[in-house]
Design a protein around this nucleic acid. Sequence first.
DNA 1: ACAATAAGGGAAAAATTTATCCCTATGCAA
DNA 2: TTGCATAGGGATAAATTTTTCCCTTATTGT
Lengths: 118, 118
Amino acid sequence: MYEKKIPLNLNCGLDLIGEVLYGKWKIRLLWFINEGHKRPSELQRKIPDASRRVLNIQLKELEEHELITKKIYPVVPPKVEYSLTDFGKTLIPVIAALGQWGDDNEERLKTIILSLLK
Amino acid sequence: MYEKKIPLNLNCGLDLIGEVLYGKWKIRLLWFINEGHKRPSELQRKIPDASRRVLNIQLKELEEHELITKKIYPVVPPKVEYSLTDFGKTLIPVIAALGQWGDDNEERLKTIILSLLK
DNA sequence: ACAATAAGGGAAAAATTTATCCCTATGCAA
DNA sequence: TTGCATAGGGATAAATTTTTCCCTTATTGT
């Protein structure tokens, strides 16, 4: 695994939440798991732009941060299911607020973002 | 400026808000500006772990995304002040929710994060 | 037999972000 | 007159994150 060279900041609530949510696909993973898409292959289909590899890595980090649990069924072909922990569930309203703001301002944001591309 | 090679995702609210908030110091910048720390030098003192350079870059991006405005006073030595736009102000409750979650779970998060370092 | 599905890890490359260093300009204070 | 504060840009290096590619295992469908 990659070892950080720049020391962490854990000074305030924003630092702390950043430590567990900062990652390109993490919020989406939590969201979809909450919606009931529990298996890795389902999640990969829900998030086709992410590489399989990163999803695995970020799922493992979410697990290490105790936001989700992983259940491995001893069958072949393999079956795995992720679920939110109670702790992870407390994040859902926060994530919902983020998504809501984005949805509420969809028009405006799209206009701004796209106009900056040219 | 750096030109993206991987196309953007703007499919849902989470993608959209990510587009404007994703950046190591952006949330902190918005927060401190909202608290009344408007000048670049003040912000740099509030966020000493960030390099001066990135703060400038991220401030510019926040401005381009219409979350803050920049006012330049034609004096020497130069004086600049940033303020939240009305649009930017609508993000404050969302950021507050993020920080609140981090604060509410400070103990637990610190324990988890630090235990993963060894 | 062969391809597809399921889950996931290693290695290396590519993409992206952040940090470091140096330079400009002007007025004020010691 | 040397040094600090103020604001900020260019170039380059370093750090970090994400992608790409390949490999393994065992069963089911064609």
